[in-house]
Simulated scan of single mutants.
Amino acid sequence: MHVPDGFINAPVSVAAGAVAVGAVAVSLRGARRELDERTAPLAGLVAAFIFAVQMLNFPVAAGTSGHLLGGALAAILVGPYTAVLCVSVVLLMQGLLFADGGLTALGVNITVMACVTTVVAYAIFRGLAKVLPRGRRSVTAAAFTAALVSVPAAAAAFTLLYAVGGTTDVPLGKVATAMIGVHVLIGIGEAAITALTVGAVIAVRPDLVHGARGLTAPLKLRVGGELVDAPATPAPAPAAAGSHRKLWAAGLVTSLILAGFVSFYASTNPDGLEKVAHDKGFDKGEKEHDAADSPLADYGVKDISNTRLSGGLAGVIGVGVTVVAGTAVFWAVRRRRDGDGTESGPASTATDDVTAATATAATSTTSATSVTKPAENA
């Protein structure tokens, strides 16, 4: 759903840019409470993973394809504020290096693809998390639903912007119907990718998943006939650090494989916005991208004639650039939080609570005679 230059007029593009700048500024401050020494590298990896998966267009219907937007996935893994930054980093890299999404439309894309998807998805996810039974399956189900709804919500947001600032006179009712209809189908793919990814990370390191905080119930001890909270027993630091590094390495390798090899088999059909724009005639306002002469334009390396090699190499470069840029941003935010001092408490406390709860839950199998088991995690 990358909006190109020329679809939206200058005044609305400027207004959307102002909204995007404000959202990024708020997110930079909010991300300080979400990031710590473990989740900052994960956030950079999430940005790289979103970049890689967005290269994997999947067919939906009638010669149309779709791809991950990523707002729901990022919000659940690293938190809503950090998610806005993750998707914004991806959109910036795509616009500057790969001529994907207009530069004058960058504010529109950040507003629609980063802000709307994240806000809608996280609101739905938190609402479902409060009413569903606590457990991994519930987190995965909530992630699926949140991601599914976030995609047509983004399509509706684009349609609203086009209604105000569209550069071509087309029937808006038909545009809205077509945009939301096809993006409901794309949302099913988004939901499946999001649920599978969140479930996989929870199975390995639930303490690193922002949306899974509080998943495990505190351990209870029976003392004098009453249940009391057991003292927290932190997990061994070296093992946790090793697990963290393994997760990061596995995620990076997966992203490189997806972008460098699996992308060979991505659908070549136009995505939802391209298809609707062509069918309804508002693609006539599209302007040539300012970075059309980039060496990596259109996800290929200039002067390499082999299409697969060119596309795969461009994907690998994109993942590398995105993970470096994202990690640098999130480490800077995390260092700023540590420097402030006043904002380091909530995030670190919440993370420590989850780690302690996870570690104490693991000890319950050896204390069955005196301990009440924690909430079911399966």
Rank of each mutant, 00 (worst) to 15 (best):
A155M: 04
A235C: 08
G187V: 06
V209G: 12
V324E: 00
V209F: 12
A72F: 04
A16Y: 07
A141P: 01
I180S: 05
T167F: 08
N377E: 15
L247C: 12
G199P: 09
E226P: 00
V149M: 08
A156C: 07
D100C: 04
L103M: 11
G345Y: 11
V151R: 12
S267D: 11
G242W: 01
N306C: 02
V139D: 05
G70L: 03
L106D: 00
G339F: 02
V120T: 15
A18L: 15
A292N: 01
V184D: 05
I186V: 15
G66C: 11
A192V: 15
L35Y: 03
G71V: 09
L97N: 09
T194H: 04
K373M: 15
L196A: 14
G127V: 01
V170K: 05
L77W: 02
T363A: 02
T268M: 12
T140Y: 04
F144W: 13
G6C: 08
I202T: 06
G6F: 07
G285L: 06
K174N: 12
G107Q: 07
T342R: 12
M1H: 10
T216V: 13
L160C: 00
D169C: 06
G318D: 06
D169P: 02
Y122P: 07
V119M: 13
G318Q: 00
S27L: 12
T349V: 09
P295G: 09
L96I: 14
L73R: 10
G312L: 00
G127E: 00
L258S: 08
L35F: 00
L160V: 09
L96M: 13
S370M: 13
A314L: 00
T366R: 01
T365S: 14
T372Q: 15
A203H: 05
G315D: 04
T64V: 14
G102W: 06
V319Y: 00
